[in-house]
């Protein structure tokens, strides 16, 4: 089970001479839940965007299931089996929840060029099954634009699952949610990850979420990886406390 599904080696990116990410290397094992934390501007988002295809790295390798995906476009990365959710939810607001998932399914089956067939019935059952899995089937006919934030996060998850990903990238999955919703969403994610052995890599600001739901934590500071370990180790790491955690989480 301990096969690395994602291998990141010597990843670097600069903006106008400033190193945003410097020589970062790590691996993610199938089914593992891994959090990336660090202060604002530490390079979390840059790092993340190099994994999902939004940014091309200056240097370094990103290998997914043995294939170099650095520099591929997001849509190509998705086709290979990497799903993602956004920090601020990105769904198709004018379409219903079901249509959102149907669109992802149509894309997976490469049927989006079809001009004159009716899309409404395409993969409707499959879409509903996905919505049921994340617990928002009752909202299937509502427009995404009118959904509550927590529900949108779940819809995003269903969209991400539509392509049966082996790796899920979640950028601040619980930003803007209440503590209870946070817990529920992360429990759901963990369960899915375990049951279908999907690896989950997420960035997060909420330390409760991180310490409760990550099996491993990476800490970035000024673009460099300064810690990589289990929550119990990272929590007491003096450097991490100095640059990021402060005193609140020290005694746990």
């Amino acid at each position: 089970m301990n096969v690395p599904i994602l291998k990141v080696a010597h990843l670097s990116k600069s903006y106008g001479g400033v190193r945003a990410v410097a020589n970062v290397s790590f691996e993610v094992v199938s089914g593992e839940r891994l959090a990336i934390i660090g202060p604002n501007g530490a390079g979390k988002t840059t790092c993340f965007n190099m994994l999902n295809g939004q940014l091309a790295p200056d240097q370094g390798k990103v290998e997914f299931e043995g294939r170099d995906i650095a520099g591929l476009k997001p849509r190509q990365v998705w086709r290979l089996g990497v799903g993602r959710t956004f920090q601020i939810t990105e769904t198709f607001g004018s379409m219903t929840v079901r249509e959102n998932v149907q669109t992802a399914l149509l894309s997976r089956h490469r049927r989006l060029r079809s001009l004159l067939t009716l899309a409404a019935r395409a993969y409707a059952n499959e879409a509903d099954a996905l919505l049921a899995r994340v617990g928002v089937l009752d909202l299937a006919a509502r427009a995404c634009a009118v959904l509550a934030y927590g529900d949108l996060k779940r819809v995003e998850l269903a969209i991400a699952l539509a392509n049966r990903p082996r790796l899920l990238l979640m950028d601040e999955p619980t930003a803007g949610m209440s503590p209870r919703e946070r817990g529920e969403l992360m429990r759901l994610t963990s369960e899915l990850a375990r049951r279908e052995s999907i690896a989950v890599l997420f960035t997060e600001h909420d330390m409760d979420v991180v310490f409760n739901h990550a099996e491993r934590i990476l800490v970035l500071n000024q673009g460099e990886l300064i810690a990589d370990g289990r929550p119990t180790e990272v929590r007491v790491d003096p450097r991490v406390r100095e640059v990021y955690l402060g005193n609140r989480f020290a005694d746990a």
């Binding site: 202060p39 604002n40 601040e172």
Partner: peptide
């Protein structure tokens, strides 16, 4: 405090 590092929130 939303989105701030724990240190900054303090």
């Amino acid at each position: 405090s939303e989105g701030l590092a724990p240190l900054v929130a303090e």
